[in-house]
């Protein structure tokens, strides 16, 4: 953490306005993320953690404050970022190969070179043999591997992952976590990873950012200094888990109380 941060979030607030009311998703968030670190952002449902990621991606613009990426303010989406979606958001009309080459051919790569590059990532993600398959024929875990390959293939500076394993079953999820650590160690990308699983956070992260209930603020930051590959047990692991959990628990309780009070549903974020 000696170098400059690659992503800076400076005094960012985000308010969504519709015809009925204002929703304050984020207030006054200040955060810094350093190159090649694995950062997990965790918080109760509806705390605006996905919003935070969408702001970094440039899909949304902050109401106040700014997001700085590699020294420049984020104004719109761009290929210096890769994004992995919870619902995969693959293009069903493109094959596995076509999904992965999409970001390349649309950024000036020649078709042949794009395919070669895509094949590297197909190998990296253990997707060999499925190059010409259409996404609807793949399982959830495989779809997300395509999603990760698609986001990594054009070599972005940061990888943004919005609850990428949220829709997977427990076994697949565990496997994908192990795979992700392996790939991260190979590529050394800066990762911003959203989850609401503490177990997942402590398994993956160098640094865990705990968010408050809505409106989202930074509640605390937990550094995770455990050697990899990690397992899900052991005293030091459980100690970190406890730390994150205790930060979270108040917020989850608060989130539930607020949502009951304001008649919002719990699970909207």
């Amino acid at each position: 953490m000696n170098s400059e941060p690659i992503v800076e979030i400076k005094g960012v607030s985000k308010t969504f306005t519709d015809s009925h009311n204002n929703v304050h998703a984020l207030t006054n968030v200040d955060l810094e993320f350093w190159p090649s670190t694995f950062n997990v952002i965790i918080g109760p449902s509806g705390c605006g953690k996905s919003t935070l990621l969408y702001l970094v991606a440039g899909f949304e613009t902050p109401t106040t404050g700014q997001v700085i990426l590699n020294g420049e303010e984020v104004k719109e989406p761009g290929p210096d970022r890769g994004f992995v979606f919870q619902d995969y958001a693959l293009f069903p009309w493109r094959t596995v190969l076509g999904n992965i080459t999409f970001g390349l051919t649309n950024n000036g790569w020649k078709r042949k070179e794009a395919i070669e590059r895509a094949r590297e990532y197909i190998r990296l993600m253990n997707l060999e043999g499925f190059e010409n398959a259409f996404p609807h024929t793949l399982s959830g875990g495989m779809k997300q591997r395509v999603g990760i390959a698609r986001a990594l293939a054009y070599d972005p500076l940061v990888l943004l992952m919005d609850e990428p394993f949220g829709a997977l079953d427990a076994q697949t999820r565990k496997y994908m976590q192990q795979e992700l650590v392996r790939i991260w160690q190979e590529t050394k990308k800066t990762v911003l990873f959203i989850t609401h699983s503490v177990i997942e956070a402590v398994y993956l992260a160098d640094r865990i950012v705990v968010m408050t209930a809505r409106p989202g603020q930074v509640k605390g930051i937990v550094d995770v200094d455990l050697p990899r590959p990690r397992n899900y047990t052991g005293d030091d692991y459980l100690e970190v888990r406890e730390k994150v959990l205790s930060l979270l628990e108040e917020e989850v309780a608060k989130g539930i109380k607020d949502s009951l009070a304001s008649d919002n549903t719990l699970f909207t974020d």
């Binding site: 991606a57 440039g58 899909f59 719109e76 989406p77 761009g78 290929p79 970022r81 890769g82 994004f83 979606f85 619902d87 958001a89 693959l90 293009f91 999409f102 970001g103 649309n106 950024n107 698609r150 986001a151 054009y154």
Partner: peptide, 20 residues
């Protein structure tokens, strides 16, 4: 999110219309 997935690689305008 499919539209976002195209936007993140810089695809917009007519290219977005035809590719997504």
């Amino acid at each position: 999110n499919q539209i976002h997935a195209a936007e993140i690689v810089g695809v917009k305008g007519l290219r977005l219309v035809f590719s997504v």
